[in-house]
């Protein structure tokens, strides 16, 4: 690894961009994830900034399970993100479809569609738990960044 690459990696590690994508969820996890960027919890302490563009993002935070209409969109967003990337599944619906497990249009849990690195359980999880999950995903992402040539 060259010195330049090391500097670039150091800078990337201090400023990961986060993409928040709400799938077939109930909004509960969505507002708790949004609460993480507000002054009480403030993930900007870790240099994390929420971005709207998948091509600029390093971390993908997903709420809710995925129905048939949403599935190709989620795949496309995941594939649009630059390598290396990490995925956090927030909430019971994202992990195992939650209370809606036998609803007729509630397709698949997230990990059947895209690879998931960190699971944050809860209905909805508290912002502290979500921040913990994001920080754990950052650790994994750091390893991938160092392996990535």
């Amino acid at each position: 690894m060259t010195i330049l690459k090391k500097i670039v990696n150091f800078a990337r590690l201090k400023s990961p961009y986060l993409l928040h994508f709400d799938c077939t969820g109930c909004n509960g996890c969505t507002i708790e994830t949004l609460a993480c960027i507000t002054p009480r919890y403030d993930v900007e302490r870790f240099g994390i900034v929420e971005k709207g563009n998948p091509r600029h993002s390093d971390l993908l935070v997903i709420n809710g399970s995925v129905n048939k209409k949403m599935e190709p969109r989620l795949k496309r967003i995941y594939e649009g993100m630059a390598h290396p990337k990490a995925v956090v599944a927030v909430g019971a619906c994202a992990i195992s479809r939650g209370v809606f497990f036998d609803a007729y249009n509630n397709g698949k849990p997230i990990d059947k569609i895209v690879p998931v690195d960190v699971y944050v359980p809860g209905c909805p999880p508290k912002p502290e738990a979500i921040i913990d999950g994001i920080v754990k995903a950052l650790g994994l992402w750091k390893e991938r960044l160092e392996e990535y040539k």
Binding site: T24, G25, N67, K69, M70, R73, F100, D102, Y104, N105
Partner: peptide
């Protein structure tokens, strides 16, 4: 249709 889960159907079950 992105967030349709089928809640009314689920409530009948």
């Amino acid at each position: 249709g992105y967030i349709h889960r089928g809640i009314e159907g689920l409530m009948q079950k």
